[in-house]
Design a binder for these strands. Structure first.
Ligand SMILES: [Mn+2]
Ligand SMILES: [Mn+2]
Ligand SMILES: [Zn+2]
Ligand SMILES: [Zn+2]
Lengths: 178, 178
DNA sequence: TTGATAATGAAAACCATTATCAATATACAC
DNA sequence: GTGTATATTGATAATGGTTTTCATTATCAA
């Protein structure tokens, strides 16, 4: 007989009750989607998945419940480049407390990596410790984005730059930096 | 007689011309605002400032020019938590190529810090070098956000939790985590 | 089971950003 | 300088993710 608290499969039920919030079918469906997906999803992603198990659910409830979960500290919300926010569980057994990405500013490609290199863990461990003390700030999550040119895009700038040439005498061909 | 290229006060003029873009009054005004402010601004911030020196300017031109500058690699654009994008020069003598912030998930306060603790610069340098090689990715800018509780908000949760108590028998007082 | 009230969802509102398009400014040829 | 091709502008409308509104429904302690 499994325990239904702490880190068990229904750890989040206690969170709702403990906060004085009612445990409803839409809310169960939403947390369930986040728990099973175990990666960052947009509100619409969550809506589409939850809709399958509970077709009556509305997009409004998705947004409302997500905000609630963020306030409770159960979900981490962060902005992505495409104008839609992303949400992921940041509490419970499957919690992910960091997001590290390489973002190509030319094609928009996002490389979401978790296989940190040697120096990286040390870097953030030390940095977070220093910042916590210096600013008396309790760090719970982090988002790290390196912006630049992906493999393909940086090659294209040198290899296919001639494609950008224009015949008009009024438009001098754009250099490879434009 | 000062040079008007490279890192001089009008370094960005050559960028426009070199890319085949015309040098217009609205464009000058926009770059000038970014150059003088030397911190990240929203499109509206830029509009309001540029409007003072060139009242005929339209918000549309602000967005269009910013996108152009981003494509040219002169401006770095990143998402802030409030739904408005921020822009800052990332080329020229005043370029800023990184943004490090502490974001309070309770009150929304943002601490924008640049006074890096010891070792931080070196570790980022090494980390970026490692990532560049591993993913063959040319890193140009970075955004680092630590999310959590600011000084005030983490104190309030313990000190004033009694304020959250509700008299209704149906609403058990929210614990300090809600 | 009942009743107070928390939660829901359809619809409308909101708001930053984009697309349209007719008018204008720029820069090159002459 | 003048003329001409076209890049640029800005008012306006449209877009799309997110919030607000509000009448209806579901939850849960008693
Ligand atoms: Mn991620
Ligand atoms: Mn900054
Ligand atoms: Zn790319
Ligand atoms: Zn705070």
């Amino acid at each position: 007989m499994p325990r239904r608290n702490g880190t068990g499969p229904f750890w989040w039920r206690g969170r709702f009750k403990g906060c004085g919030y009612r445990l409803t079918i839409p809310r169960k469906a939403i947390v369930d989607v986040l728990d099973k997906a175990n990666k960052h999803l947009s509100a619409e992603d969550i809506y589409l998945s939850a809709h399958k198990v509970y077709p009556a659910i509305g997009l409004t409830t998705i947004y409302r419940t997500l905000e609630l979960l963020v306030q409770m500290g159960v979900v981490f919300k962060f902005a992505s480049g495409d104008g839609r926010a992303r949400y992921q569980l940041s509490a419970g057994p499957k919690a992910v407390k960091y997001h590290h990405q390489l973002v190509c500013t030319t094609c928009g490609r996002v490389i979401d990596y978790a296989d940190f290199i040697d120096k990286e863990k040390e870097l953030f461990s030390q940095t977070e410790k220093g910042l916590s003390e210096k600013y008396n700030f309790k760090i719970l999550n982090r988002l790290v984005r390196f912006y630049g040119l992906c493999d393909e895009c940086s090659q294209q700038r040198t290899v296919t730059s001639h494609k950008l040439q224009v015949t008009s005498h009024q438009s001098p061909e754009r250099s490879k930096d434009c």
